[in-house]
Design a protein around this nucleic acid. Structure first.
Length: 489
RNA sequence: CGGGGUGUAGCUCAGCCCGGUUAGAGUGCUACGUUCGGGACGUAGAGGCCGAUGGUUCGAAUCCAUUCACCCCGACCA
């Protein structure tokens, strides 16, 4: 194999980086902190978008698009929001260049903006400023809007897909007449993300609420789904915020009730990003390369003919054609790789590395026997199958792979999740990685101390499972339930 | 912003300590032939301002200074 991949056990971070680059998903751009998402990576994101967008539509949302540029003053209107994002905003100060004999082009000092624009790190402010004009009456509510967009957060340190200066995401922004409706919406979207993670990404997640210090800047409550990567670190896979009336207050968004009273609107926002591509990689992939759950694989089944010459290739094409048709009728994406420039062995390695879930090899021997060789990427098992009813068998196999990936990820998480009862035990256990369920007194001081001393943070206060009270592992004060601690991405 | 590293062929890198013909390898690329059930082989070829600038020197990929870029580890964050 010419493309040597670092082993996970040797250096997990390097393995991840190598994999992203060598599987042709993305590369570093010339601009620091930014990446080029290449077709194989982007196709995965497109599949995610499609599935999520359908789920958003099914829950009553519509798409719209708001500007990339936000007047600087908007950000300042919500106190905690500005505090959260000010440090990482790119700012546009001028609107024109002019040619310069020495430097080619320079910023035209004459073209300074009256009010500087920031490039959105998120869109709450501009959206709520717009909503003010849209919402007048209870009849205008609820307003359920999503946008697919890019955002920029000037990060000091970046990693492909997991953290880049610019990234792609969706952000839902909804407005409601009552607190109850807004809370309900927050939870509904958290459930949508949970279903998406488990059914599509094949990643089991823990639903929870963030502690105050991890809360979104401007939210009353931030809910999240937390996933565990193979190295035992946590990764936040989605968030849903109950924003209360904070943005309505900041942007003066009032509506007239049935009783003809003026009231502030209740808000939510929720989002997932291209970081999910990173989550996908770090959950399922192995030392042989990318492993993709069938539901998100751009191509689910690749067929590699093994032919000595053009006639054989044609014969194989005819032999397998009914299967290809039958697979496509089932909505399964199939690629018949009849490129005679590349050899079968090369193709095997290539498709394996890029994570195609199922590979079917067909050669002269198969045509004699009425068979094909079917290889599954998740287990690397190969078996010879009769070509009869092959499409049905492959369909079942894809389902089995999807299920197997989820079960494997779940088993891994279960193995690496444990309850700890003392801080001493915690300090030892956290070094081994994984999720630690421990009692916490609910104070920011204790949380901060644990973070400083162990680098572990409270990922969330789980909404489900063990909710038995106890005493804080650090201070011994009362705790309402165990919370999830981990080191995180 | 601290610490470490790397810039030489499309890619991965050697050469640099100890300056000296025409700067190398593997891989990829092009052509032709033999091959084709796990990244084939042979033959012939194309491909480089050695990151940039300035010094030292008869002579610099190599020594010195400056500078730029990127990567990795930390602090900050989705």
């Amino acid at each position: 194999m010419s493309e040597q991949l670092t082993k996970r056990a040797d250096d997990y971070a390097k393995w991840y980086n190598d994999l992203v680059l060598k599987a042709d998903m993305a590369e570093h751009s010339e601009v620091r902190g930014c990446m080029v998402i290449k077709p194989h990576g982007y196709a995965i994101w497109e599949k995610m978008q499609r599935a999520l967008d359908d789920m958003f539509k099914a829950t009553g949302h519509v798409n719209a698009y708001f500007p990339l540029f936000i007047p600087k003053s908007y950000l300042a209107k919500e106190a905690s929001h500005v505090e959260g994002f000010a440090k990482e905003c790119a700012v546009v100060t001028h609107y024109r260049l002019k040619s310069d004999p020495v430097h080619g082009v320079v910023v035209d000092p004459e073209a300074k903006l009256e009010e500087e624009l920031i490039i959105r790190p998120t869109s709450e402010t501009i959206i709520w400023n717009t909503y003010r004009g849209w919402i007048k009456s209870y009849r205008d509510l609820p307003l359920l809007i999503n946008q697919w967009a890019n955002v920029v957060r000037w990060e000091m340190r970046t990693r492909l897909f997991l953290r880049t200066a610019e990234f792609l995401w969706q952000e839902g922004h909804t407005a409601h007449a009552t607190k109850e409706e807004a809370v309900e919406e927050t939870m509904r979207m958290l459930d949508v993300y949970t279903r998406f993670a488990e059914e599509w990404l094949a990643i089991p997640v823990i639903k929870g609420v963030k502690s105050a210090s991890e809360r979104f800047a401007g939210a009353e409550d931030t809910y999240c789904i937390e996933a565990m990567m193979q190295d035992g670190k946590a990764l936040q896979a989605g968030t849903s915020h109950f924003l209360g009336q904070n943005f309505a207050k900041a942007f003066d968004v009032m509506f007239t009730t049935k009783e003809n009273k003026q009231e502030l609107v209740w808000a939510t926002s929720w989002g997932v990003s291209t970081r999910l591509v990173g989550a996908l990689i770090m959950t399922h992939s192995d030392d042989h390369g990318l492993v993709l759950p069938p539901k998100l694989a751009p191509v689910q089944v690749v067929i590699v003919p093994i032919a000595k010459n053009g006639e054989q290739l044609t014969a194989i094409g005819e032999y397998i054609e009914p299967t290809i048709t039958a697979l496509r009728v089932k909505g399964i994406t199939v690629k018949f790789d009849n490129d005679d420039q590349k050899k079968p062995g090369w193709k095997f390695a290539e498709y394996e590395f890029k994570g195609y879930p199922v590979r079917i090899a067909v050669g002269p021997r198969d045509m004699e026997n009425g068979t094909v060789e079917v290889a599954r990427r998740d287990t690397l098992e190969k078996q010879v199958m009769q070509v009869t009813d092959l499409a049905d068998k492959v369909e079942h196999l894809l389902t089995a792979i999807q299920d197997n990936l989820y079960q494997k990820a779940l088993a891994m998480r279960e193995n690496m999740t444990r309850a700890v009862n003392s801080y001493e035990e915690f300090k030892v256990e956290i070094e081994k990685g994984g999720f630690l369920m421990a009692h916490w007194d609910g104070t920011a001081e204790t949380e901060e101390r644990v973070k400083q001393e162990t680098k572990a943070t409270i990922r969330c206060i789980p909404l489900e499972g063990d909710r038995v009270p106890g005493t804080c592992m650090v201070t011994g004060k009362p705790s309402t339930q165990r919370v999830l601690f981990a080191r995180a991405y």
